[in-house]
Nucleic acid binder design. Structure first.
Length: 543
DNA sequence: ACTCTGTCAACAGACGGG
DNA sequence: GCCCGTCC
DNA sequence: ACCTGTTGACAGAG
């Protein structure tokens, strides 16, 4: 869509994500032999994000688009393995950065600095001050900003969520706008991409519940993924079976396939059985080193994982010989039963999540389903509201066939010989098993996160765009942040013009026909065309 | 040889003058 | 239009 | 104290 089509529209934007991007992108060369660094004021406070936000907001307003910025609250208390992975990655980057600094390797410094960019509380507060002075509304989400953006759209307070992050659709935002970063100098491809949630569901032929499951399968953030299952396969599987539970059940008939399902996705019972099997395999291989029987899933991909393996080896080599073997036995980076911080974190995080989700008030679920089903109308309306609620979930979970433990085709088990040498490792693992009786499959937690995310109901939020507070802006930008007075004044002029014309444009869009050059019309809400099929490809096709 | 998948690494702004 | 230096 | 999507090159499986 052309920019002009969105004149007068309200767009909810995830501020934290924008800030993050600005901090990474807006950097200055610091002269010869120095790494590029974020812009700062005299006190050394970061200003790149201020610069970026100020410019972009003025540009949006000048185009007649009314932004509302939504800030993150507390992170959701889940993200078990993912969280641990990120922490590890971060620590690694930190280490590498220091090494690079010591060596004076500029390229490496920049690379690792980028990986460590973080939006601090203060950064966000600074931007809130800026936005309020600009007369632009700010919403503070209780949890994830994307979820709150989606609620604003669903509740009619905003026309669309403006973000690149596909998660808003999983949160059931009615519309999403991408590529909202049109620039003043016209480069090629200035189009804004609009994605309509109801149409998307209609086109790919899924209910919202199925769509959420699809996103989880594709690896939406909060969970591990099933190896070999990407977008295409995930869609195929969901269409074929209807839910993750049904897919798992189907996969459980083939040991080879079922091996790919991450431990965290299994219920406690199946999971501990699998672990018992792995343990037996590992021990058998340990004591039987001359006579190793190759496992089918054993080949580690040298190129991909060699790095990680090295690290693991450095740290654990002599402590625990089971680790490398276990690593080989699973395709995941971190064996779930390995006595590392990772597995501990995972279980505690999940326990916390399980405990807290009960407290989440009955916000979203009803609103979501109702809105979606009313918009879908034709195709799948009857099913959407009821299809996947608790009953199906639990029922299906119970039906999953546990993996066969005893018949090991490849392992010659000689239990008697194993015991004395490896008893310590075994004890370690069994201690973990205790906590794991409470284990809830990861994808179920993720599902809850998408469907019952903590939000402020849209009806409780009032949005207002007011005249900018010129004095406050000058004080903040010029005096505090050290911006050039000339530029600021110029920008403020633009801002006032844009804010002033907002009302006019809005009236125009109500009472007048739109400018001639626009061939579509703004209010067009195309009904789901029964014939239009190619759109299904649009979602994944990069084009 | 060809297609479909998955994985990895690299990368991300906006303005204005020339 | 595109390229490139600059923003703090 | 957490924080990501896209792209293009590439490898492996069917």
């Amino acid at each position: 869509m052309e920019v002009e089509s969105y004149m007068g529209r309200i767009v909810a934007i995830d501020a934290s994500m924008a800030l993050y991007q600005f901090l990474i992108a807006i950097r200055a060369q610091g002269g010869e032999g120095t790494a590029a660094a974020v812009l700062t004021n005299a006190e050394g406070e970061q200003t790149s994000h201020i610069q970026g936000m100020f410019n972009r907001t003025i540009r949006l307003l000048s185009a007649g688009i009314k932004p509302v910025y939504v800030f993150d609250g507390k992170p959701p208390n889940m993200k078990g393995g993912e969280l641990a992975k990120r922490q590890a990655k971060r620590a690694e980057a930190q280490k590498k950065l220091e090494e690079a600094r010591a060596k004076g390797d500029i390229e490496a410094i920049e690379k690792h600095e980028g990986a460590l960019v973080k939006v601090s509380k203060k950064d966000a507060e600074d931007v809130k001050v800026l936005l309020r002075a600009m007369g632009v509304p700010v919403v503070e989400a209780p949890c994830e900003a994307e979820a709150q953006c989606a609620e604003l759209v669903r509740g009619g307070k905003a026309y669309a969520a403006g973000t690149e992050d596909m998660d808003v659709l999983t949160f059931a935002a009615t519309r999403q706008l991408r590529k909202l970063t049109f620039s003043s100098s016209k480069k090629a491809d200035q189009r804004i991409v609009e994605i309509n949630h109801a149409r998307l569901l209609n086109d790919i032929g899924l209910t919202n519940d199925q769509f959420v499951d699809l996103c989880i399968l594709c690896g939406c953030d909060y969970t591990n993924r099933i190896d070999k299952v990407g977008p295409k396969t995930a869609l195929k599987l969901i269409k074929q079976h209807g839910s993750i539970e049904a897919i798992l059940k189907s996969m459980s008939t083939s040991p080879k396939e079922y091996d790919r399902v991450p431990d965290e996705w299994l219920d406690a019972d199946t999971r501990s059985k699998r672990k018992a099997k792995r343990r037996a395999q590992a021990l058998a291989r340990l004591t039987n080193t001359e006579n190793r029987v190759p496992l089918e899933t054993t080949k580690p991909k040298e190129d991909n994982n060699a790095h990680h393996q090295d690290i693991d080896n450095k740290q654990q080599q002599d402590k625990n010989k089971i680790q490398p073997l276990a690593f080989a036995a699973t395709t995941n980076e971190i064996p779930a039963f390995a006595p590392t911080t990772q597995s501990v974190n995972t279980s505690t995080a999940e326990a916390t999540f399980a405990a807290t989700t009960n407290e989440i008030p009955a916000f979203a679920p009803t609103t979501q389903s109702v809105n979606i089903s009313t918009e879908i109308e034709a195709t799948s309306a009857p099913t959407t509201t009821e299809i996947v609620q608790q009953p199906l979930m639990t029922e299906a979970t119970e039906n999953i066939i546990p993996m066969e433990v005893d018949e090991d085709e490849f392992i010659p088990v000689k239990t008697a010989e194993l015991k004395e040498s490896e008893s310590t490792e075994i004890e370690l693992e069994e201690q973990n098993d205790e906590d794991e009786s409470k284990h809830v499959p990861e994808y179920i937690g993720a599902r809850k996160l998408f469907k019952e995310h903590e939000i402020i109901p849209a009806k409780d939020i009032q949005l207002k765009w007011t005249k900018p507070d010129e004095a406050a802006l000058r004080a903040f930008l010029i005096d505090k942040m050290g911006f050039a007075a000339e530029r600021v004044d110029g920008a403020i002029k633009k801002l006032i013009t844009a804010q002033g014309s907002l009302k006019q444009q809005r009236m125009d869009s109500f009472f007048k026909v739109l400018p001639k050059k626009v061939d579509g019309n703004v209010n067009k809400r195309p009904p789901p065309p029964a014939s239009k099929k190619p759109a299904a490809a649009k979602k994944k096709k990069t084009r």
